[in-house]
Amino acid sequence: MAKNGTPSPRHGWATLLRSPRLLLAVWLVPVLLGLPFVLTVQALLAPVLGNLPADPAPGDLQLIVSGTLARSVAVLAVPVLLAVLGGWAWRVLWHAGIVRWRAWAAGRPQRLGELVGLGLMAWWRYARLSLVALVAAALVTGGIWAPATRLARDAVGRLDETTSVRIVLAAAALTAIVLLILWTATVRGLWELARPGRRSAALAWLRGLGGALRHPLASLGTLLAWAVPLLAVWAGSLAAVRALGPGIAGMAVLQLGALLTAACSIGLVGSFAPVTDLPPFPAPGQAARRTGAPVNKPQAVATAGETAP
C-alpha cells in the first residue's frame, strides 16, 4: 500500500495560513445559515417580548417564551433544519474543496471560487463519505448502548445500582473513545478519498479507520490538538457573553470565538493532509506560488468524472 505520512498540527497551520478567504467563509456561512432561525425567533417573539418591562411579573417571561415557542414548533422546525442540514452540506463542500484544492493546486494562492468549484464537483462523493461515517457512528453507538442499557437495567432489577452506574459510565467512556477514533477515521478518510482513482467513499473511510488504528497517537493527538481548543474557545466565548452581557462587546467576543472555532476546524482538516502522498506545501514565496502553475500532477488526482485505474 501507499506510504502514509504522519498527520501533524503543523500542516494544519500551513493550510490555515494559506486559506484566509476560506476562513472567512467557514466563519460566515454558518452565521448566514443560522440567520433564518434568528429572524424567525425575532419575528415570533418581538411582538410579545418588546412590550415587556425590564422586570415583568414573576414567571411571566418563562410562560410567554415557552408558550410562544410551543405553539410555533412547526414554524421553527424549518430554520432549525436549514441550519443543521445546511451546515452539514456546507461542511461537506468545503472539506471536499480544501482536499481537492490541496491536491490539485497546492502551490497556487487559494481562490475561494476555485475551492468551492472543486468542492461542488466532488460534493456527492464526500457526502457519501459523511453518510458512511454517520452510519458507522450510529452503529457503534447503538452497539455499545444496546447491551449496556440492558445490563444496566438488569443490575437495577437486582437492586445493584453501583454496577449499573459503572456499566453506564464505562459505556459512556467507551463511546467517547470510539467516537474520537471514528472522527479521526473520517478526517483521514477525507484525504484518502483524494487518492488517485479512489471513488468508493466506504473504502476511503475504511482506509481512514485503518490509518487511525495504525497510528492512534499521531492521529488522536492531532485531532485533539485542534478539537480541544475549538471547544475551549466556544465555551469561553459563551462564558464571556454571560459576564459581559449580550451587548456589542459580548457579541464581538462571540463572533471572535466563532472565527477562532472556524480556524480550528480548518486547521483540523488540514493537519491530516500528509495522509495522502501529496507533497508538503512549499514555503511561502517559492516559485510555484509566483508562477501560479500547479505543482502537483493533475492527472494524479482523482476527479469526479474519472474512472478507477
Binding site: 441550519a83 452539514w88 471514528l182
Partner: peptide
C-alpha cells in the same frame, strides 16, 4: 450552533 456542530465530526 451546538446542535449543528454535533454533525461536524461526521462530515
Amino acid at each position: 450552533r451546538a446542535l449543528a456542530g454535533l454533525l461536524a465530526p461526521w462530515s
